[in-house]
């Protein structure tokens, strides 16, 4: 991607009438948006009992993603900062309710009322400071904090994002974890530069039994929970058997930092949602002398 819209202008100005019009005229944009929202709804994993839910669409724009929600029978409330985009949504006669608002100012919603939230290509806008009063970190915190509050217990939020670089992804993910969400990043088509899509899948409240880490320090990627718990146990046994030794001696050996350190670092990166190879008996093992 040569030019990112985030770098050109603030969202309320970038999405003017001309840009908004594209969202009704370009069949390519419409198709991409529909696919993304379809996938987001799938990741939302709402109980399959046919009961319509009240969902939140953050950065709903012209309501393309909302249409997918309506097709699946759900009621939704959409929030966007661009008046032009909302006008297009009105023109398309979407079924959900629309709000003109800035997610970085927090969502003004009552606690615990929303069953699930989706967001298509919106949250990365929060990483930019478009006004002197904008501090990305605080805006992300306000957004995730209010999202966490308004979601019902166990509710999920699926946010499709285009982070500009690893730092941005980390910033977003860390802000989410900081307010209490558990979950991680799901990457579709990781090897294709065009089709690659990242979804933040966040669950409100403590992680469920299947994904939880016994020590209760919280948030981990879903796929790697098994490795992590075994890694934790090992750490613990080491600690207990050597408990009378001063801590520093344990860590600094002649040969560098050792297996514990590597495991700790790997776990940290896993929590951030990075791709980390599983822990095996070969992890951090010393090479033979002939190398």
């Amino acid at each position: 991607m040569s030019s990112r819209p985030e770098l050109q202008a603030p969202p309320e100005i970038f999405y003017d009438d001309v840009e908004a019009r594209k969202y009704t005229s370009s069949s390519r944009i419409i198709e991409i948006q529909a696919n993304l929202s379809e996938r987001a709804l799938e990741l939302l994993a709402l109980p399959d009992d046919g009961v319509p839910r009240l969902l939140l669409d953050i950065g709903c724009g012209s309501g393309l993603s909302g249409e997918t929600l309506s097709e699946n029978g759900h009621q939704w409330v959409g929030l966007d900062i661009s008046q032009s985009m909302l006008d297009i949504a009105l023109e398309r006669e979407v079924e959900g309710d629309l709000l003109l608002g800035d997610m970085g100012q927090g969502l003004g919603l009552r606690p615990g009322v929303i069953d699930g939230a989706i967001s298509i290509s919106a949250v990365q806008w929060l990483c930019n400071a478009d006004k002197s009063c904008h501090v990305p970190k605080l805006r992300l915190k306000a957004f995730f904090g209010s999202l966490y509050r308004c979601l019902a217990r166990g509710g999920r939020a699926v946010l499709q994002v285009y982070p500009e670089n690893i730092q941005q992804r980390e910033l977003i993910l860390r802000s989410a974890m900081h307010v209490g969400f558990s979950g991680g990043v799901v990457v579709d088509y990781p090897h294709s530069s065009k089709k690659r899509k990242e979804y933040l899948v966040l669950t409100c409240g403590p992680p469920s039994v299947s994904t939880s880490v016994p020590t209760g320090k919280g948030e981990d990627g879903e796929s790697s929970s098994d490795d992590e718990s075994s890694g934790d146990e090992e750490n613990q046994t080491v600690c207990i058997s050597d408990r009378h030794r001063p801590k520093k001696k344990q860590k600094i050996t002649k040969k560098g930092r050792g297996r514990d350190w590597v495991l700790k670092k790997k776990e940290q990166r896993r929590r951030r949602g990075d791709d980390v190879p599983p822990d095996t008996k070969y992890t951090a093992r010393k090479r033979k002398a002939r190398f």
Partner: peptide
Amino acid sequence: MRLLTHNMLSSNIKGVSNGFP
């Protein structure tokens, strides 16, 4: 805006402790 949404919305101004309804 439907009353459903009205029932969910609360005022988000800094320093407001009870912005509902």
